[in-house]
Design a protein around this nucleic acid. Structure first.
Lengths: 244, 244
DNA sequence: TCAAAAGTGTTGGAGCTACACCCATGT
DNA sequence: ACATGGGTGTAGCTCCAACACTTTTGA
């Protein structure tokens, strides 16, 4: 934590902060091949009537993570998700409110990055508040510096996918290798790997257990359902594992 | 930034924060084969007379990064360094000062992670303030949750080294491959790679330019001095490059 | 001449890429 | 029957670990 006590001297007065939490909520619609991000329409100044990342200010007695979950719960109903802190933006003059009247209070934003299961996520229709999934390539100009935050979060998402098993936090309990492949393809873009090579590599790693169950989605040969075996995966933790 | 305005209602009062910045300052003494971290002895409550990470509270008009550099400048004199934000710790009840009197003010800590060139870093002997380099394995019990923060920073350091060229921010302009190898060996520990393989791999990547200059450190065959060629490296940016 | 450090080369195996090809199902 | 997606196999290549070996210096 902070090192020095609030300095009694007047030469270098400390800044007073309100702390906000902004969430980048990603979801992957594998069927439509789309990476989506949740945006909300701002209802008040500043940046009224502009889209923005869903955010809130931290309340008394509330932790940063609590605040992040609170936003999530207000916007969508979801069971399975992955949540992680991203970055803190705290320079002066970030927020127009700082100059306006408020006793020199500064606004610091801690951004969180979330991944939710698309098929299960239900948008909560708020009173007149616009909430919508936007495909990542169609995101408009956002309030504050939210476009930069989003950019940063998108890079982090791609990195996370490549070296950690987040995909399984957000895929259904049972899934086919085709679904897994589509998932990666959607986020990482075309040409990251051939399907059959992806398949062979993942299976050789040994943490996908074959349930023996077959499932048929429309035409084509029925696919085997697999389950992520966390125990078999654990020895691979923090190895320089590559999924792509 | 934060989404909603300060709520006028009294049902959910917002928290007021002071924001601190804590630095994990690493340095690598390749000659002695030691990874060092800078600690300071606290001079005031809470945790008086305990070692801690160097930190400070953010002043009016000062950005987070400015504050991080200010700490650095107060403790050491150094030209070459790498600095990056690590993580923000902001739960309630982290800081004993919160309960004590201070109007419900909360303390949020943004930690930064720095790497400085050891040979060049000069500790600034502060008035009676203890400042010292500690080998990473000998770090004592620290104030606040600084041991956890340090643990987190150490992981990040190792990761950074493996996939990004931070080493060259902190190595001398000209260096031998032996020095580079020792550098990695010190942080990553024994047995990460054979010298000759490390050498062959790095040279094949093509961003180390041979200066032709030879240098002799004591016994043994003189070594060639190399220079990091940032331009030749740039195409490898954000590739899943592995140094180890 | 010997130890120490720099630098080169080789060899077997693992893993990746880019395919070609077979299998089971719906229409 | 054929299109569609699931699943298997393989040849050629790259890369890497492990180790043996040569070169150039200081003592």
């Amino acid at each position: 934590m902070a090192g020095n006590p609030p300095q009694p001297s007047t030469s270098h007065p400390l800044a007073d902060f309100k702390v906000g939490v902004d969430n980048i909520i990603f979801s992957i619609d594998t069927a439509a091949h789309r990476l989506l991000v949740l945006l909300v329409m701002r209802q008040q100044q500043p940046f009224c009537d502009r889209w923005s990342l869903p955010g809130t200010l931290v309340r008394q007695g509330e932790s940063l993570e609590d605040a992040a979950y609170r936003i999530l719960d207000e916007k969508i109903k979801v069971e399975n998700l992955y949540l992680e802190q991203l970055y803190s933006f705290g320079g002066p003059h970030r927020d127009p409110r700082e100059s306006a009247g408020s006793y020199n209070v500064r606004y610091l934003s801690v951004s969180y990055f979330a991944l939710v299961r698309f098929e299960e996520a239900q948008l909560i229709p708020n009173q007149s508040t616009g909430v919508a999934w936007y495909p990542i390539e169609e995101v408009p100009s956002l309030a504050f510096d939210h476009n930069q935050i989003l950019e940063y979060g998108y890079r982090r998402l791609r990195n996370k996918l490549e070296y950690s098993p987040v995909a399984f936090d957000v895929l259904p309990e049972l899934f086919t290798l085709g679904e897994l492949y589509q998932f990666y393809l959607t986020v990482l873009g075309e040409g990251f790997s051939d399907y059959s090579n992806f398949r062979a590599r993942l299976l050789k790693l040994g943490f996908l257990s074959d349930t023996g169950i077959k499932t048929s989605r429309g035409a084509g040969r029925p696919a085997t359902l697999y389950r992520f075996d966390a125990e078999a995966f654990s020895p691979l933790k923090d190895k320089p594992l590559v999924f792509v």
